[in-house]
Amino acid sequence: MTTTAKKRERGQPWVYVVLAGGLVVLVGPFVWMLLGSVKPDAEIRRVPPTWLPEAPTLDNYRHLFTELDFPAFFLNSVLVAGAVTVGNLVFCSMLGYALAKLEFPGRRVVFALVLGMLMVPGMVTFVPLFMLVSRLGLVDSYAGLILPWLASPFGVFLMRQFMTGLPDDLIQAARVDGAGELRIFARVVLPLCGPALATLGILTFLSSWNNFLWPLVVAQSEDRYTLPVALALYAIGENNTRYGLLMAGSVAVIVPVLLVFVALQRHFVQGIATTGLK
């Protein structure tokens, strides 16, 4: 970190200008979306486009509630993403610990299977998975939306990489003190895994929240739609001229994940640094 201190002395102004330019390109579309969500449709369509709304209105957001069952979509998204996140935190850390610190027959095979699964494209499993879920009678159910994603090879890999770095002496000491293996896992190891759990939690929540192909196929009635599904069907469907409504819906999809990300981004970046790169 010594040079960063040195480099800090001359933060050249032009770097700020370039970065700010990049920021405009990356964030500008979102600002435009936010502004668009408080414009009436006619103004959004105007040529040339206006930046600031002439007469800001919350009608688009009101319509989310009056014309769509927005609260239900929102709750579905929270429920599915929440359950998937909890499942991943529990199951992936369990296997991650076993792979990192316990000697059991078949360990190498299990780890190789996990790594192999990382490379399987989603399209390979897509249809057999759907056939399975429909045979189990889980189409259009929360179980069908949640169960297949309760654990992920990526999560196991991430937790295993992190836990491998924990000192063995700590675990050995707990064993000498007579703690059982499960107790060591729950009381000694897990409390040390905060950054990795935070990273896995954020990544899982984000990808589950944003996932839309699977819920698009499995959720067939409106009371199982998640937010992206509702928005996608709405954007693609016949209502796709209701621009203001689409903008407001997009804002509603983004804001929750944005809040989660901003609140936890410190852990997240740290987590990528410690685990993603190993």
Partner: peptide, 19 residues
């Protein structure tokens, strides 16, 4: 800057498509 540059990564593709 980091949060701003990361914003598109955490955004639903559907919302990205709309805009």
């Amino acid at each position: 800057f980091r949060v701003g540059y990361y914003l598109p990564v955490v955004t639903s593709i559907v919302a990205v498509a709309v805009v």
